Simulated scan of single mutants.
Amino acid sequence: MLKPPAANMPGMTDTLDFVKNLWGSMNLPGTNMSGMAAPPMSVEDLDKRIADLKAVESWLNLNLTMLRGTIQTMEVQRATLSTLKSMGASMA
């Protein structure tokens, strides 16, 4: 049976749990289970939630950059292996 992708990366589960807990603790409008509108928030609460969301955004951008780099590295490896294979076939 295959493991989910996060289970294959050390530390990834902890990071995902952190983001889930952070996201769940924000009580954003439309995310509460009762279906009722969220109570009005103070400016301080809004500032804190904005800061929290910006931290999550930074984390997601970092992970996106790392993912793109990994994909690009694998594409270069694939091209290199393909070139070496075709060179070996032409020499044989």
Rank of each mutant, 00 (worst) to 15 (best):
residue 43 V to K: 09
residue 45 D to G: 05
residue 57 E to G: 00
residue 85 K to V: 00
residue 47 D to M: 12
residue 25 S to N: 12
residue 24 G to R: 02
residue 71 I to S: 04
residue 45 D to N: 08
residue 89 A to S: 05
residue 4 P to H: 00
residue 9 M to H: 06
residue 78 R to K: 15
residue 77 Q to D: 14
residue 38 A to C: 15
residue 85 K to W: 03
residue 68 R to I: 07
residue 34 S to C: 02
residue 62 L to S: 10
residue 1 M to H: 07
residue 24 G to H: 05
residue 88 G to W: 01
residue 60 L to I: 15
residue 53 L to E: 05
residue 65 T to N: 12
residue 22 L to S: 08
residue 11 G to E: 06
residue 59 W to K: 02
residue 31 T to C: 06
residue 6 A to N: 07
residue 17 D to K: 02
residue 83 T to I: 01
residue 40 P to G: 03
residue 55 A to T: 14
residue 82 S to I: 00
residue 26 M to Q: 15
residue 17 D to S: 13
residue 33 M to P: 00
residue 6 A to F: 13
residue 19 V to A: 10
residue 71 I to A: 06
residue 29 P to S: 01
residue 67 L to G: 03
residue 20 K to Y: 14
residue 52 D to Y: 01
residue 8 N to V: 08
residue 10 P to Y: 07
residue 71 I to G: 01
residue 13 T to A: 11
residue 10 P to H: 00
residue 21 N to P: 01
residue 18 F to E: 14
residue 36 M to G: 07
residue 24 G to M: 07
residue 30 G to S: 03
residue 70 T to W: 02
residue 82 S to A: 10
residue 75 E to V: 04
residue 86 S to P: 01
residue 12 M to C: 14
residue 86 S to H: 06
residue 74 M to Q: 15
residue 65 T to Q: 15
residue 64 L to S: 12
residue 91 M to Q: 05
residue 62 L to Y: 06
residue 92 A to S: 09
residue 54 K to D: 13
residue 66 M to C: 05
residue 80 T to F: 09
residue 39 P to K: 10
residue 1 M to S: 11
residue 30 G to Q: 07
residue 15 T to A: 15
residue 52 D to N: 10
residue 38 A to T: 15
residue 74 M to K: 10
residue 28 L to S: 02
residue 61 N to V: 07
